[in-house]
Amino acid sequence: MTAPTINGTRYPQPIEDLLPAARALDLPDGEVFPSRNRLMREFRIGAPKAGELLALLKATPAAPPADTAEAATPDPAPAPAAPEPAPPVVPDPTPAPEITPTPPAEVAPVSRPDTPAPPAPVRSAVVWPVVLLALPAFVAIWSGWVGLGGLTGFGIVHPLPGIWDSFSINSAITLPIGVETYGAYALYVWLSGRVPERARRFAKWSALGSLAIGALGQVAYHLLEAAGVTSAPWWITTAVACLPVAVLGMGAALAHLVRTHD
């Protein structure tokens, strides 16, 4: 049955007056708003006006019923009761007994059975006896090399002519300083174990060779001195004259190898 107009006439009604009647229409299950065709049929309005009414229905939500609004509004929670004041605390006039702190008992460390005991500290060997051993060796080696140098042409020289003419030096001291000092240093590098393998191998053979040459020099000097020779043979002179140059080359090579990496 077609619903009559709102004011009982069939003249066009304003959209604001049709809005409550459009909300009151019975809709099938699943539909939220009536269709435009139904609005045109129910209220005898044209398509443009039905479209405006449908848009207004979708834009303006319906007011909930009064009983529903009242049910949705929760009752205000009752105000919490004020807590009762606590009774005042009366201090005890009796003084507290004095407590003497007990020192904590000494706890001995407990070791696990499978934990190895720490190794005992190892004392380093003393090296001062080496000084006593080196003193007589230094005197004998120094005198032997200086004497052999004198038999092979080493002697007093003036290294600063025109600058310090009175300054002189015996060039024979270069033999013990060069040969024996290099032998001791190469021996230290060899036995230290803190250098690359190439440097350690070079230090080993050069130290042994330097010590052997030092021993041969001492033997040559004492043999020549015992035989009363005042001038060494040419081949001994040649070998002794090459020693400073050989020591310089071996020292430079060893210093280079010590600073390299394998």
Rank of each mutant, 00 (worst) to 15 (best):
P34H: 10
N37R: 15
R38L: 04
R38T: 03
M40G: 15
R41G: 10
F43K: 01
F43A: 01
R44S: 15
G46P: 00
P48I: 06
P48C: 02
K49F: 02
K49L: 11
K49S: 13
E52P: 00
L53S: 05
L53T: 03
L54W: 05
L54V: 04
A59N: 10
P61A: 13
P65F: 00
P65S: 12
A66Q: 11
D67N: 12
D67S: 14
D67W: 05
T68A: 15
A69M: 04
A71Y: 02
A71V: 02
A72L: 14
T73R: 14
P74D: 06
D75Y: 02
P76D: 05
A77Y: 08
A77W: 04
P78M: 05
P78Q: 05
A79G: 07
E84L: 08
E84T: 06
P85V: 03
A86G: 13
P88I: 05
P88M: 04
V89W: 06
V89K: 12
P91V: 04
P93S: 07
P93L: 05
P93N: 07
P93D: 03
T94A: 14
T94Q: 11
P95W: 06
E98A: 10
I99C: 03
P101N: 09
P103C: 08
P104N: 06
A105V: 06
E106S: 08
V107H: 09
V107A: 14
V107T: 15
V107R: 15
P109H: 04
P109S: 07
V110G: 12
R112W: 03
P113K: 12
D114R: 11
D114I: 02
P116F: 03
P119G: 11
V122P: 01
V122F: 02
V122W: 00
V126Q: 07
V127Q: 07
V127S: 12
P129H: 04
V130Y: 13
L132Y: 05
A134R: 11
A134L: 09
L135Q: 03
L135M: 13
P136M: 03
P136W: 00
A137M: 10
F138G: 15
A140T: 09
W142T: 10
W142M: 04
W142I: 00
S143D: 08
S143W: 06
G144A: 15
W145T: 06
W145A: 15
G147Q: 02
G147F: 01
L148H: 13
L148Y: 11
L148M: 10
L151H: 13
